[in-house]
Write a protein that binds this DNA or RNA. Structure first.
Lengths: 225, 225
DNA sequence: GGACCCCATATTGCATACATTCTGCGGGTT
DNA sequence: AACCCGCAGAATGTATGCAATATGGGGTCC
């Protein structure tokens, strides 16, 4: 929106991302207004925007809190991303330009290099490369406002950070290879291949983050026996 | 959010839905504030919320306008709904309770009856039954906040109304039978069946709304020859 | 005659003040 | 001792006033 409100949005995002405010913490309006040097009005608007985006949740007369993602919700988010970004990968493959392909390949290769050194990566860099890669896919898909906003509402920085931190070395390298394979599928102009790998990529991230998931037919809580 | 703001959200929605404001029309803050008998503050918040929801679009210092959906964006919306609500149908089938199944069946049957009389339906009733049906599927899917909000951001009342108005008798009856079939699939506890029918349901709606769509391999604009 | 500039007006963006609601604590009662 | 009532403090919700920016028209210059 306006320059002032938008800077507040970024400011609050930074505060949440940097861990100044953890999951479940309260975000007071006056407190933020003082911290960012503006009045309550733009702060209120920024909080509403971030709430609509899914990063905060607001309850009337009680204020804003950082959302606390339950495992069930994380599971749902990645299931949705598998569907939506799978679609994005398919469409991107149908429309991608050679320049975009080169850009994607560059990002995939750099991601590989950043994760190739074994444990002890530069997580910030890996995070950035990953976010760029997924964003460019959506962009290449001809991203109308709907696709873009749905993906944005699903890809919260906080979740991504948490995800990367829980990745072990195997999951990290697998994720990197997925990126490379997606580019290969797109170069082959094979939308179905690209879609499948992208879905697998996100479902594999879900598994790395949450472990195996129960399903209806499984025996009841075998882990407790 | 607060009672006042929420009532303004509903009020603006009604104004847009009833056609008081058409696609592309400007929504002045003072104008709405006067019309709804409140101050500009809750109006501003309501406009921001509706913009985040996708019904309006706001440009800094220029105010809010009703979004004008292009055919490409409508196409994208239904493609996304096919993915996301397909997932919802699958999960709903895995978790639905007998009571929810009865409710869904009731809605599907009423939808059938409302569309069975041939052209000249009560479109408002059909709209309501359709919205309820889709909403209950999401609910039965165990709708976490992510799934719910994504679907809500995709299912704009305005789009649905436009869609229903463009349905001919064949498309309307087909849509109704899809609802019945989805319930049948859920009763059979067949998630894959339910997912496929739901996806087909939405892609068929897309076709009814937009006509056949071009694809990469098709000859260039054969309609002009 | 056309294009450009400048200003008046209206609208949005931001700040502040008032009203309302929630929260936490203390005292009293059962 | 436990519970309930009521009040004080603080935070959110709403209204209004001021500043900044976009829009439209009239005038002037080329």
């Amino acid at each position: 929106m306006s320059t002032e409100t938008e800077s507040v949005v970024d400011g609050v995002r930074r505060l949440v991302l940097s861990g100044q405010y953890a999951s479940g913490d309260r975000l007071g309006e006056v407190e933020l207004a003082a911290a960012l040097g503006v009045s309550r009005t733009p702060v209120r608007e920024a909080l509403r925007l971030l709430a609509a985006e899914g990063l905060l949740e607001i309850t009337p007369n009680k204020g804003a809190r950082v959302v606390a993602w339950s495992p069930a919700e994380l599971e749902e988010i990645f299931a949705l991303r598998a569907q939506v970004e799978g679609l994005a990968a398919r469409r991107a493959t149908e429309r991608v330009t050679p320049e975009q392909l080169d850009e994607l390949e560059r990002l995939a290769v750099e991601h590989s290099e950043a994760t190739g050194a074994g444990p002890g990566y530069d997580l910030e860099r890996v995070y950035e490369l990953n976010a760029l890669f997924h964003g460019r896919i959506v962009q290449a898909a001809g991203g109308g406002t709907s696709l873009t906003s749905v993906v944005n509402s699903l890809v919260h920085s906080v979740v991504l950070h948490r995800t990367l931190h829980t990745f072990d070395d195997v999951a990290m390298k697998r994720s990197s290879r997925h990126h490379v394979e997606i580019v290969a599928a797109m170069r082959s102009r094979d939308p179905e291949w690209a879609e499948c790998v992208m879905r697998g990529h996100l479902l594999s991230a879900r598994a790395a983050l949450l472990g195996p998931r129960p399903h209806p037919g499984s025996p009841p809580t075998p882990t407790t026996l």
